[in-house]
């Protein structure tokens, strides 16, 4: 049918450009080494021995935004910090994705006051929202898996999908 039949067992796979590019992007996603508050400790937990984020090719946290393609906003964003978050996002090269980790980054969480930005999506576009205060490492990994699936669905013409929300089963609205 395709070229692989003619070539025999030579280790040739036919695919689309879209799939191979997206596959490459998902399996070597480098997150920005960027922690804000409590959630950053759970993010460290996700990278440490028990949860081992390197299983998904994500052990390499880049401290420089120029080398990162995923920003995990882990924690509450204050009004003083918001311009810095935006600047870091702008410094990241395309293609780039954002995970809002925790309730504070998603919607301000329990801090509805003068100091905290009510959701980091006021500042940067968010791809996946992970709920929890702080989310367990499993929830973060689930969010990352969702992002991987989303990246796999990405079209080469650059059209973006709507954000994904990961919520605790008890909190989901039926």
């Amino acid at each position: 049918m395709g070229i692989e039949e003619k070539a025999g067992n030579l280790g040739i796979v036919t695919t689309t450009l879209e799939t191979v590019v997206n596959w490459g992007r998902t399996n070597a996603m480098w997150p920005l080494l960027f922690g804000l508050a409590c959630c950053a400790i759970e993010m460290m937990g996700a990278q440490a021995s028990n949860y081992d984020l390197s299983r998904f090719g994500m052990e390499l946290n880049r401290a420089s935004p120029r080398q990162a393609d995923l920003m995990i906003v882990a924690g509450r964003v204050s009004r003083k910090m918001a311009p810095v978050v935006r600047r870091l996002y702008d410094q990241m090269p395309e293609p780039k994705w954002v995970i809002a980790m925790g309730d504070c980054a998603a919607c301000g969480g329990i801090f509805n006051n003068y100091a905290i930005v009510q959701g980091v999506d006021e500042v940067v576009p968010v791809d996946v929202y992970v709920a929890g205060c702080p989310p367990r490492p499993e929830a973060l990994i689930d969010g990352i898996m969702m992002l991987h699936q989303k990246v796999m669905r990405e079209k080469i013409n650059g059209k973006k999908e709507a954000p994904i929300r990961i919520e605790h089963p008890l909190m989901q609205v039926k």
Binding site: L36, A37, C38, G75, R76, S78, K80, M81, V84, I110, F111, N113, Y114, A115, I116
Partner: peptide
């Protein structure tokens, strides 16, 4: 850069409910 206004927010919570803010 991480100012959260916890002390101020506690003034608008009852004593028991402010416990949650101390965690953070």
């Amino acid at each position: 850069y991480l100012h959260t206004g916890i002390e101020k927010t506690m003034e608008s919570k009852t004593y028991q409910k402010a416990v949650v803010l101390t965690d953070r």
